[in-house]
């Protein structure tokens, strides 16, 4: 969720920049960001489901087999 907030904020910055110079480039960047966010959300949520299935909790620290 925090990642979504961040991506959104970055996109906002791009759009503002594009609007400053009345160019469409800012909006184009925002579209790409949107596409990326969509892709990342789907894959991330899939991973989340898998994590929940394996460890029966959403504790990120539980998946620390790769330590050391």
């Amino acid at each position: 969720m925090s990642i979504e907030v961040m991506l959104n904020a970055a996109g906002l910055a791009f759009v503002v920049a594009g609007s400053r110079w009345a160019q469409p480039d800012g909006q184009v960047m925002f579209i790409f960001i949107l596409a990326t966010a969509a892709a990342e959300v789907s894959v991330g949520l899939a991973l989340l489901l898998q994590l929940h299935h394996q460890y029966k909790s959403l504790d990120a620290d539980a998946a620390s087999v790769m330590r050391g």
Binding site: I31, F32, A35, T36, A38, A39, E40, S42, V43, L45, A46, L47, L49, Q50
Partner: peptide, 16 residues
């Protein structure tokens, strides 16, 4: 972006 979408689609399907 379209390729990214394709990758995300396949990945999400497989991982879930």
């Amino acid at each position: 972006a379209s390729m990214l979408m394709l990758g995300a689609l396949v990945g999400a399907y497989h991982l879930a």
